[in-house]
Nucleic acid binder design. Structure first.
Lengths: 172, 172
DNA sequence: CAAAAGACCATGAAAAGGCATGAAATCCCT
DNA sequence: AGGGATTTCATGCCTTTTCATGGTCTTTTG
């Protein structure tokens, strides 16, 4: 199950699918929904997620360690490509990407009961307060402040957030 | 699990991921953040890092001993490649790289509590003063003077440095 | 002898782990 | 298919451990 190497990467055999709204306590502690943990563990058999700012939206992106390795390999491949193309060129682009992929993200293990402490920096970047909306998007998943999702999300996301909030008896 | 040789290197199974800002005391002592030590020890089970000047940026690069071995092997591979290509060509490039990879770097063990004394030459090359910003970049990690990061870094890095400084109650 | 390097202890803050609870979802058996 | 029993989850609370960092004291070395 590890890394068969036969074409398909294990990371993409299981996809993040679904959504959930969970509470964040005063110390920034929160449960990773079970459906996410299932995929994380089948993909990488590590009880940890990697969290970082989303590239374009006011939320966080997250994935498992196997996917992080995948990103690393892609980065290295691209570097070699650029090196051979642009003369002996600068690797500036490479370093920038690597820094973004690994410096701005954090590896966060979860405990046996499936909880993490959202790192303060991520909490701030994602503007996560006392609720976290998890949204599967296939290869990765997103973590939203549900109120921001209502405000800045596309129509589908807004509807999703509204539903999950109502479900909890919250109607802002 | 050491170095199976069958494709995947152990060095790349665990990646440096995250960031931290630590103090450098009057004696030049500083703690290697726990998340770095974890990866270092899983990769090479040695309590030491290898530090050198960064290829393009005003900071230091560092990694574990296993990764140093990896660089050596890569270098040799590349030498053979260039030799067979450019006629019996000069090995100038090879020697230059080897000197850079091993001559300009230093192997620095850390004590049981996880602290090193930054070698004076590195301290000077990286212009490290009383704060050190560690930034994971996958295969390796960087050590910045956070003020230089603010000044010369790309946007992401600047933001990172600013956040880590604020977090400590420092706003330059 | 002086200065630097290294080992050892001390401490406060933060994080990790464990235990308990209530609610919801699932299973299972008639 | 129903309905009770069981398991899984999310979540609050409390305890233990880890970490970063400062200080002191010893050892080494020029």
């Amino acid at each position: 199950m590890r890394e068969g190497g036969r074409g398909k990467a294990v990371e993409l055999e299981h996809l993040f699918n679904g959504s959930a709204l969970n509470a964040v306590d005063a110390k920034g502690r929160l449960s990773i929904p079970a459906f996410i943990r299932g995929v994380v563990e089948r993909r990488s058999d590590a009880r940890a997620i990697v969290v970082g700012p989303h590239e374009t939206d006011p939320c966080l992106t997250a994935y498992d360690r196997g996917y992080a390795r995948h990103l690393h390999i892609e980065n290295e491949r691209r570097r070699l490509l650029e090196e051979s193309q642009a003369g002996s060129g600068d690797n500036v682009g490479h370093f920038r990407r690597a820094r973004r992929t690994f410096g701005l993200t954090e590896d966060v293990p979860y405990d046996p009961s499936g909880r993490i402490i959202m790192p303060p920096m991520m909490r701030r970047k994602g503007r996560i307060e006392d609720l976290a909306l998890f949204v599967g998007v296939g290869g990765t998943f997103e973590i939203w402040n549900p109120l921001l999702a209502l405000e800045h999300g596309d129509e589908d996301l807004r509807e999703l957030a509204a539903f999950r909030l109502e479900e909890r008896g919250l109607r802002p």
